[in-house]
Amino acid sequence: MKKFLAPLLLLAGLAATAQINTITPGQSAPGFKLKNVDGKEISFSSFTNSKGFIVVFTCNTCPYAKRYEQRIVELNDKYAPLGYPVIAINPNDPELSDGDSYEDMQSLAKSKQYKFPYLFDEGQAITNQYGARNTPQIFLVSKTTSGNVIEYTGAIDNDPENTNPGKTKYVEQAITALQKNSKPDVTVTKAIGCGVKRRS
């Protein structure tokens, strides 16, 4: 009997690690004040006329994040004028992720000509409050009379490699629903990508 117990206990130990609780649609969006690549601090209240926000946890280094870079730029170009600006946050601990330092973020934002904030979450407090797991991961937020509310979490679309012209664009679909004062059909998808480099 003892022979069987030991592995069982080990398995229980394995299962207990790495619990990340991602906030879900309907919950309020945690506020933040984080340093942008231009040195200024950004929060939700930096945007006075917006209807909501496309918050995306993304980074410099992950191949999935790189594949999605241009699609994030395009989301901002299309939806910032309609009231849904992109706010990008780098969730990685730069000590654990070579190439994701604040200076690296500044270089990327400059070379890609980001017109949206790219924020540094020093200490990863906001990353943990949102429960961001992977990069890139979207949290679509709407401004309501009862505060900022999560409307959708997950992937930008279902085609990370960007080879399918008929891909399902989850973020666009969710915003289209919000614009009609209704709720998105799909509110949660899995954000395939690179695990956030967390300080344990």
Partner: peptide, 15 residues
Amino acid sequence: AQVYINRIDSAWSGS
């Protein structure tokens, strides 16, 4: 990705 992640395992986040 949404299809294959869940077909490999419903517990997989995709990383």
